[in-house]
Design a binder for these strands. Structure first.
Length: 473
DNA sequence: ATGTGC
């Protein structure tokens, strides 16, 4: 696959073969050689050949090979185009939520940090396959959550009313219908609501180490030295099962509608078809479920903080900064056109003044949350006008350089400990974490800088990790 | 990502 340089940090993937539109890939000199090592460019080209695709298909600087569309990929489709489960991803509405506390991080020594993550882990079940403990999360609450997201939870006393306008889409994608979801998905989903999961999912205690844009940071409630909590998780077995179910359904549908599918992972159907509409209705359930999942976890984190720090002199105001999806398909208006934007390992990044922002962030642009790998920094940025060329999208993280198996094999104990640079973690056995080691990921500073340098994004704040909870498998 | 498998 041939990339043609098109200005700083920007490459065009020119039309070839069955591509209907061009690709646009963001990389600097450090990232470019890493992108060429896997199938991600071919996957981008495959997506560019789907019916109704509106160009360019975009590859973010953290792009790497995925199921169907690469992770770090953006695909826009016109209303007469297609919808693809693989272009949303296995973990529907995998996303990030950032909380900011009024606790000065330098007053928390390692034993207190340890106490905090232990208490959080006591309240939030972690690990693959883990079910929620019976904390009153009934089938009714599950069914309400998939249809209206955190809104119903707030009415029931989980979280605060003020949280709701700090969630992408207000925490509720319209059109969710549990009737489109298999009973198997519901069985898995009902018992996992309020759990973290495994893999790259985490809860991290961080300190705001640097501000780049003080005015915007103020608007986001971010002060230097304050302790923040970042939550990265998604729709657990619920979204996974929906993706698996609909990948099969959409593959069969593609055949019926005469759509040539270049790869099983890009199985798709016309947005307007019954199969396409059903997938959207099911996906919306998982989107709302994941917002609700992060919302319930927030409730448990607030409880843990009161337990550990509540008797001291701390003001325990723990405010939601924002909650953003990075695996989702939704309707947005771009250049006067209504498009179904598939973002997989990519986040929305709207500029200031854009009407798609929640009202409280209209004048700044909503916060874009970009976690680094475990042990490395995370960033808060905003979108800029120039991001119109990527359908107002930015990268979602650092992006892998080593597969999970390669990381387990190649990274030594010494390398791991050095790369964790003193960050506390919630397990005795470092081997369980090697597949998530910093060395398995790209350099987050380089990835963030790639878009910031060409004014697609504007850096607002840097967050350094202090302690992390990872799901143990 | 995931009760990690068609």
């Amino acid at each position: 696959m041939k990339l043609v340089r098109s200005g700083e940090n920007r490459y065009r993937l020119k039309r070839q073969g069955k591509m209907l539109v061009e690709g646009l890939v963001y990389a600097n000199d450090y990232l470019l050689p890493l992108i060429a090592t896997d199938k991600s460019l071919q996957q981008l080209a495959d997506a560019a050949g789907l019916p109704g695709v509106v160009g360019p298909v975009c590859g973010m600087p953290d792009m790497h090979e995925g199921f169907g569309l690469p992770i770090g990929g953006v695909m826009a489709c016109a209303p007469d185009g297609v919808i693809s489960a693989g272009a949303v991803g296995m973990d529907i509405n995998c996303g990030v939520r950032l909380l900011v506390t009024e606790v000065p991080a330098d007053e928390l020594d390692p034993p207190i940090l340890r106490k905090l993550i232990n208490r959080i882990e006591r309240y939030v079940p972690t690990g693959v396959g883990r079910k929620g403990r019976n904390r009153g999360i009934t089938r009714d609450i599950f069914e309400e959550a998939v249809h209206i997201g955190p809104l119903g939870l707030v009415k029931r006393g989980y979280g605060l009313p003020a949280d709701l306008n700090k969630i992408e889409e207000g925490g509720c994608l319209p059109g969710a219908d549990l009737g489109a979801v298999s009973s198997r998905a519901c069985e898995r989903g009902a018992v996992q609501l309020g759990t973290l999961g495994g893999g790259n999912h985490f809860i991290e205690l961080q300190v705001i180490s640097e501000l780049y844009d003080r005015q915007t940071a103020d608007a986001f409630g971010l002060c230097p030295g304050a302790l923040t909590v970042m939550v990265h998780t998604g729709s657990r077995g619920f979204g996974h099962q929906i993706c698996v179910d609909y990948s099969k359904i959409l593959l069969a549908a593609a055949g019926e509608y005469g759509i040539e599918v270049p790869d099983r992972g890009l199985a798709c159907a016309p947005i307007d078809s019954q199969e396409g509409k059903n997938y959207y209705a099911a996906m919306a359930c998982a989107v709302n479920y994941a917002f609700a999942n992060r919302h319930l976890i927030t409730h448990e984190i607030r409880k843990a903080f009161v337990d550990v720090l509540g008797k001291g002199r701390y003001n325990l105001g723990i405010n939601l900064v924002y909650d953003i999806a990075h695996n989702i398909a939704k309707w947005e208006e771009h250049g006067g056109q209504r498009l179904l934007i598939h973002r997989k390992g990519a986040t929305r990044a709207l500029p200031s003044g854009h009407m798609g922002n929640p009202s409280i962030y209209r004048h700044t642009g909503h916060p874009v949350l970009i976690p680094g790998s475990m042990g490395t920094a995370s960033y808060v940025v905003t979108g800029m006008e120039k991001a119109a060329e990527s359908f107002f999208s930015a990268n979602h993280g650092a992006g892998r350089v080593l597969s999970r198996t390669a990381a387990k094999k190649e990274i030594s104990k010494e390398q791991f400990e050095l790369s964790m640079s003193g960050t506390l973690y919630n397990t005795r056995n470092y081997r369980e974490l090697l597949d998530e080691a910093p060395g398995a990921y790209k350099d987050i500073d380089q990835v963030v800088e790639t878009l910031a340098a060409i004014d697609l994004t504007c850096k607002v704040a840097k967050l350094e990790p202090l302690a992390v909870i990872k799901g143990k498998d």
